[in-house]
């Protein structure tokens, strides 16, 4: 049977993409971020997952406002690299696992999460930056298969934090009923504190972010109670992406052990990192 072996909460700042593409990971401004992932990558090599389910949001690249799904799941064997307005990054296509995805779709829809099922889906920085940080690609491609799970966190009305947490719990059940013996990690991406619009552009709140990391570890139920307004007031309008970390946390058992934790806020986003192991 398939099982979830670990979870990662991490930010998906777009400026990380060009840093990877130009090999600037050791530049002084970026080294603290990339160094934090060295032990995470070693840990992932030991866990040796077959599939990474990446809970992320698209930024008006593949999903546009003429039709916008609340939750969308990739169900393909490959995901091309999307152009989100800055050109297509020089990355290999990301391998998927359509059979596993279709199982997840069937189980999640049976559990009353009415997903949009995507048999064609390009992926952009919301998905790719976390993959770059956790699963560096080589000339032969990516070291893991992926399932993209897209959440609407950019066009109101948004799903609630609790809904995202419950989606994670349903995802856990769906994974565990898959017949094949797969090891799965779940990545919850986005956030942490940031605001990218208006007079408050550049707002961050490390105190809130550290509190969120504390609660994610020991009391995720409390985070599921947070309203969008509360998150936006305390941590900036775009910090509402943090509800996607709750899907990751919901997919893990309450007793999952925290392994790594890091925080770096150089420019306009609190870049958090937390990992859990079953």
């Amino acid at each position: 049977m398939a099982r979830i072996v670990g979870g990662i909460g991490l930010s998906h700042v777009p400026s990380v993409g060009p840093v990877v593409d130009r090999g600037r990971q050791t530049a002084p401004a970026w080294k603290p971020l990339f160094d934090a992932y060295i032990p995470v990558r070693s840990w992932l090599e030991k866990l040796n997952p077959d599939v990474a389910i990446v809970v992320y949001n698209d930024h008006v690249a593949e999903f546009t406002f003429d039709k916008y799904p609340t939750f969308a799941l990739g169900a393909a064997d490959r995901y091309p690299i999307a152009d989100e307005g800055f050109g297509t990054r020089p990355l290999p296509e990301v391998p998927g696992d359509a059979e596993f995805s279709i199982h997840l779709c069937e189980e999640l829809i049976a559990a009353e999460f009415d997903l949009t099922v995507c048999q064609e889906l390009g992926v952009e920085h919301g998905f790719l930056v976390p993959m770059n940080l956790c699963f560096p690609h080589t000339a032969s491609g990516w070291p893991v298969r992926s399932v993209p799970l897209q959440v609407n966190v950019i066009q109101h009305p948004l799903p609630t934090a609790r809904r995202c947490y419950r989606l994670g719990q349903a995802l856990r059940k769906a994974v565990s009923s898959y017949k094949e013996d797969l090891k799965v990690v779940v990545l919850g991406t986005g956030g942490m504190s940031h605001q990218l619009q208006g007079k408050r552009f550049g707002f961050m709140n490390e105190k809130f972010d550290q509190w969120f990391l504390d609660q994610l570890e020991g009391n995720p139920e409390a985070l599921a109670e947070l309203s969008h307004h509360k998150i936006m007031e305390e941590a900036g309008a775009e910090a509402v992406e943090l509800i996607m970390w709750l899907t990751m946390r919901g997919a893990l058992s309450p007793k999952a052990k925290r392994v790594h934790r890091h925080y770096y806020a150089p420019m306009t986003t609190g870049m958090g990192l937390i990992t859990f192991e079953e």
């Binding site: 400026s15 530049a27 002084p28 401004a29 970026w30 550049g202 806020a265 150089p266 420019m267 306009t268």
Partner: peptide, 12 residues
């Protein structure tokens, strides 16, 4: 002026 308000303004 904006860059001067950042913690690490070279992370662009």
């Amino acid at each position: 002026e904006f860059l001067a308000t950042r913690n690490m303004k070279d992370a662009v």
